[in-house]
């Protein structure tokens, strides 16, 4: 068994084996273990970090979008409330205005009615007065024609007034 035989005292290839093993393994350790491995690990670490960062950024963007949507909703709610309030105010004001105008028109109409009624009353009064004077005249004429007695206008008037007013 050559593997065991080389461990016995004077064997030519044990020293060669050990020498080349140490040379090759040291080379692998220095070039690959110390030289290449850290670079590959750094690449992997950088990738892991980048993935984590990107995920965090995506999460932050998502949160920001949520916040934006929320604020937009609040804004639209607020503006809707304001619009409703404005509409209600306008309606209120319009109603009040209409009422005021109506009252004014009402008052004007009332005034006109009163004036008209006063006119009518005055007209009636003057008409009455005219009837009195016409009746007095007619009564004076009648008396003059029937009895030939001329009576004064004032007497006739008083007599007519007494008849008319009872």
């Amino acid at each position: 068994m050559p593997q065991i035989a080389q461990l016995t005292a004077d064997n030519w290839y044990l020293a060669s084996q050990l020498f080349w093993l140490l040379v090759v393994f040291a080379g692998i350790y220095l070039v690959i273990g110390r030289g290449m491995l850290p670079k590959i690990e750094a690449t992997v670490d950088a990738r892991d970090r980048k993935v984590a960062d990107d995920l965090a950024a995506a999460k932050a963007a998502h949160a920001a979008a949520d916040g934006l949507e929320e604020s937009y909703r609040q804004q639209s709610d607020a503006s809707r409330v304001a619009a409703q309030k404005a509409v209600a105010e306008a309606k209120d004001k319009a109603a009040k205005d209409a009422e005021k105008r109506l009252a004014k028109v009402d008052a004007e109409l009332g005034d006109k009615l009163a004036a008209a009624e006063a006119d009518v009353a005055a007209a009636r009064k003057s008409a009455m007065a005219e009837i009195e004077s016409v009746a007095a005249e007619a009564a004076g004429d009648l008396v003059a024609k029937l009895s030939g007695v001329k009576i004064g206008a004032a007497d006739a008037k008083a007599a007519v007034k007494a008849v008319l007013h009872g």
Binding site: Y13, S16, W20, L21, V24, G27
Partner: peptide
């Protein structure tokens, strides 16, 4: 005091190292 020879064992170590590299 030891003769160091390049052997088939050393050759395959070197081949392994090169393949790994």
């Amino acid at each position: 005091g030891h003769d160091i020879l390049f052997t088939n064992s050393a050759l395959w170590m070197v081949i392994a190292a090169i393949a790994l590299g």
